[in-house]
């Protein structure tokens, strides 16, 4: 191999042989091809109705519609904890409540203490199985947080916060 021809000017464009027409054409064909494949893949995912196959959780109506098929399989069920249905027995480590989507209600029996954010009216996803008796038994309970981030009420007035921020921003 011959030594490097021009290490003199690193900022100037080096004599790149890859600018020879054949290589340039090949690279640009690669570019067009990969953009086409990328665009195609994205539109398949975006408009290809994958939603039916890629279901992270079922809602109670869907589980009810599945009927007997839902019994025994490991599934995720998502819905809202119905108000007034939460029963927690610390001695038995058992938590019972009803999950609803507004149409169908499913009684859930979970083991273990739930996350701190668990409460009536909050969204949950439970992993487990539906028993023949129609009770959903779960060993994994997850709480769904909304995209709303709220400040607690009355802890600090808007005025106080504003002064705090202006103090910080002046740093």
């Amino acid at each position: 191999m011959t030594p490097e021809p021009s290490p003199s000017a690193p900022t100037a464009a080096p004599p790149v042989p890859s600018t020879r027409p054949a290589a340039t054409l090949q690279r640009r064909l690669f570019l067009v091809g990969s953009l086409l494949v990328a665009g195609l893949a994205l539109s398949v995912v975006a408009f290809g109705d994958l939603g039916e196959d890629l279901v992270y959780f079922w809602d109670p109506s869907q589980m009810a519609a599945a009927g007997e098929d839902a019994v025994g399989a490991t599934i995720r069920l998502g819905g809202v904890v119905k108000a007034g249905t939460v029963q927690w027995q610390p001695d038995a480590n058992s938590l019972k409540f009803i999950v609803t989507d507004g149409k169908v209600e499913v009684p859930v029996e979970a083991t273990g203490a739930p996350p701190q954010m668990f409460r009536e009216g909050i969204g949950v996803v439970v992993e487990g199985t539906l028993t023949k008796s129609g009770v959903f038994t779960s060993d994994r309970l997850m709480v769904k947080h909304s995209n709303e981030y709220k400040a607690p009420e009355g802890e600090m007035s808007a005025e106080e916060r504003k002064t705090l921020y202006t103090t910080v921003e002046e740093l």
Binding site: F30, S34, L42, Y56
Partner: peptide, 28 residues
């Protein structure tokens, strides 16, 4: 570079995943 172009397809999918599908993750 071809691999990077193809890998980038996943980025809009991540972004819209909370809109296109049911997730535990909160929406935008």
């Amino acid at each position: 570079a071809i691999a990077a172009v193809l890998a980038y397809v996943g980025v809009p999918i991540v972004y819209f995943s909370v809109k296109w599908w049911r997730t535990l993750h909160q929406p935008f």
